[in-house]
Design a protein around this nucleic acid. Sequence first.
DNA 1: ACCCAGGAAATTC
DNA 2: GAATTTCATGGG
Length: 271
Amino acid sequence: MGKLKFENVHPFDLAQTLDCGQSFRWVENEDKSFSGVVRGIVATAFYENGTLTIESDFDLDEKMWKEYFDLDLDYGKIKNDLSKMHPVLEEASMYAGGIRILNQEPFEALITFIISQNNNIGRIKGIVERLCENFGECIDGKNYAFPTAEKLALLSPDDLAVIRAGFRHRYIIDAAQKVFSGEIDLEKLRIMDYSKAQNELRKITGVGVKVADCVLLYGLHRLESFPLDVWMKRALSVLFKGYKGDEFGLYGGIAQQYIFHYSRMHKELFV
DNA sequence: ACCCAGGAAATTC
DNA sequence: GAATTTCATGGG
């Protein structure tokens, strides 16, 4: 049984952070708190007046949760610096500046972003949930941990029919096998030269540049990563003419997430 | 019926 | 080699 309180957390917005398409397992409750599972721990998060509270029936590791929500990084300063780079980025940071880049489990980021390809966020959530319920360890009767690489590595693509992810089934199995066998060591990607890390991930069938960038950003905290999906390509061509996505430096991943969220919430900009 | 979704592999030109 | 088609599935 645990409760953590982090005070003076600014800038921060729980809904933006947990529902902006980087993580697919948090569910909003009626009181605006969010419940989810991180590293096998069921927890509920709530944010009010600068204080982020995490509660659980299980013991909570303060360091792990601080890291998960990236509380040691000065987002105020980063937001300021990014705002100076481009007027539209300033606008996007005003709108989406409560987002933090989560420190998710690398394997979970890998599998969920394989599932994300040519898919929409609502459906991704459903597939991920079925994946956990069918193949993850049951924690408390109704919540499930994300499945381990070992568990998935021993399955065949047809075993995944219950999650209804279609052509991605064989990609998921290939990823699990390469991680479980040690052929790919996800932890090593944290400090590896960026393009090397990208190529390492691309050895997995079903992982191209975009999925690799997402895994590096959301699972391995490579904040320089700037994933280009259909939304970002649209946003760059319409709002950042001439930009390729490599202009935002060390914290480009944060800029990317501001722009992604801002664009998704302003569809009218792209008609 | 058609089009699209946080793409990438397979095929064709 | 670059451009196009196909790949499951579900919602609008």
